[in-house]
């Protein structure tokens, strides 16, 4: 990230933290992941799943929603207030604008993921007998994979924010873009139950669970990085086309 992209990243991050919306968004995410974590722990009582796997399964489903909330203001808000006009007429490359804004949103999402570790830490402190169930390597692996997933979802949200005129529309578009493949997957399983033998779990959740149990593969990180890169490339091309006013 170069100097201009860093400037835009810092401005957008400060802008996000200025209002109460970001804090509300993070609080909502923490509440949902905390509730999911507690619920999954309760259901798994006496089971074999490790604590970090349960935590990862509690966080991963809410990540697209957090990414949608963090990205929906990026371009849509600037377009509404008109500041996009001054930004795009400054001598700044579209690449720097996209990277700066993507970086700011990703920082918020990563902050959310790291803050969501608090219940795990608390559990670790209050239940010393669970010490053996936590694996530092597994936890680091799953956090790294969640960050990569977050990068992919955030990139999709950045593109949605660029395309949509309203912030809410951008958020809905992001959730739809990420949720549509899942809906297709669920529909496919419903129509063809035999597929369960081959794809027993939604792949992004399966990847997270694998990482939590120490099963690392190269394919998931490559996939998420590729998605992020391709979508950000599209964002740059859209900005370079300089035809935002007509959409």
């Amino acid at each position: 990230m170069n100097r201009v992209a860093r400037l835009i990243w810092w401005r957008d991050l400060c802008g996000s933290l200025y209002g109460s919306a970001s804090y509300g968004m993070l609080a909502g995410f923490l509440a949902l992941t905390g509730w999911s974590f507690a619920e999954l722990l309760r259901r798994n009582e006496g089971g074999f799943a490790s604590a970090q796997a349960i935590w990862a399964m509690a966080v991963a489903p809410w990540l697209p929603a957090l990414a949608a909330a963090a990205t929906m203001r990026l371009f849509a808000e600037e377009r509404q207030t008109g500041t996009l006009e001054t930004l795009l007429t400054a001598p700044v490359r579209p690449y720097d604008i996209v990277m700066g804004k993507f970086g700011a949103a990703l920082s918020l999402v990563v902050a959310g993921v790291l803050l969501a570790l608090l219940p795990v830490y608390a559990l670790w402190q209050v239940a010393p007998r669970m010490d053996g169930e936590f694996s530092g390597v597994g936890l680091c692996g799953v956090v790294a994979l969640l960050v990569l997933q977050a990068a992919a979802w955030t990139a999709i949200g950045t593109l949605a924010s660029l395309l949509a005129k309203q912030q809410a529309a951008a958020g809905v578009l992001t959730v739809l873009c990420i949720g549509a493949p899942y809906a297709l997957y669920a529909a496919a399983l419903a129509w063809m139950p035999r597929m369960r033998h081959h794809f027993w779990q939604w792949p992004p959740l399966g990847d997270v669970e694998d990482a939590a149990t120490g099963l690392f593969a190269l394919a998931p990180p490559v996939l998420y990085l590729s998605v992020a890169w391709c979508v950000l490339f599209l964002c740059v091309r859209f900005l370079e086309a300089r035809d935002l006013q007509t959409r």
Partner: peptide, 20 residues
């Protein structure tokens, strides 16, 4: 990019970042 480096633009609504 080179064109914009020589350009000063004041839009009609004076859009600014209110939090700065």
């Amino acid at each position: 990019l080179a064109f914009r480096a020589q350009l000063g633009y004041l839009p009609e609504r004076c859009p600014l970042y209110d939090d700065m």
